[in-house]
Every structure is written in structure tokens, then in C-alpha cells.
């Protein structure tokens, strides 16, 4: 399973909505209820799922799901 599919599963779990369709361009503006409060929850769940730790600087760079994917790839590179 590629990273994007796994990130999609994590985001679906946070929002308790299996119908969400996520791609690299998806941002907080595209999903009802994705605000700064849930944003941190998503990052925390991503960290748990991939067993990685984001830095604050990386977090400030996250605007889309593609950014999350890029940061994870950098961590495993």
C-alpha cells in the first residue's frame, strides 16, 4: 500500500468517514471539519501510523496531503 492510501486511511479514521477521497492536492479547504484543531489530530495519528516524528518547522510547511506524503518520504529516504 502506498503512502497516500495509508494517509487516506488515517484521515478517514480521524473523521470517522470511510467515504472521504484523498489525493495529493487535498487540503483543509476540501474537507468539511478539517480545521486547526483536527489538523493536529491528523498529524499525531500520521506520526503513530508511520512511526515518525514531525518537527514544528515541517508542520508549518504542511498545506496539502501531498506535503505530508513528501515529509514522510524524506524521513524514510
Amino acid at each position: 500500500m502506498d503512502n497516500l492510501t495509508q494517509i487516506e486511511a488515517v484521515i478517514r479514521k480521524v473523521f470517522k468517514d470511510d467515504s472521504l477521497i484523498i489525493d495529493a492536492q487535498t487540503s483543509a479547504d476540501d474537507i468539511d471539519g478539517w480545521d486547526s484543531l483536527t489538523h493536529l489530530q491528523i498529524i499525531t495519528e500520521i506520526e503513530k501510523h508511520f512511526s515518525v516524528k514531525f518537527t514544528l518547522s515541517e508542520l508549518l510547511d504542511v498545506n496539502t496531503v501531498g506535503d505530508i506524503d513528501r515529509i514522510i518520504q524524506q524521513k524514510f529516504a
Binding site: L37, L40, T44, L56, L59
Partner: peptide, 20 residues
């Protein structure tokens, strides 16, 4: 405030609802 206060504080305390 979100970027320079809320996010750093919530990020530092992440993992618990109380932190948020």
C-alpha cells in the same frame, strides 16, 4: 496566532485532548 501560538503549543502537547 494560529501559526505562532496555537500550533507550537498544541504541537508540543500533542497526543492528548487536554493539550489541544
Amino acid at each position: 496566532l494560529r501559526d505562532f501560538v496555537y500550533t507550537p503549543v498544541a504541537f508540543g502537547l500533542r497526543g492528548s485532548v487536554l493539550g489541544i
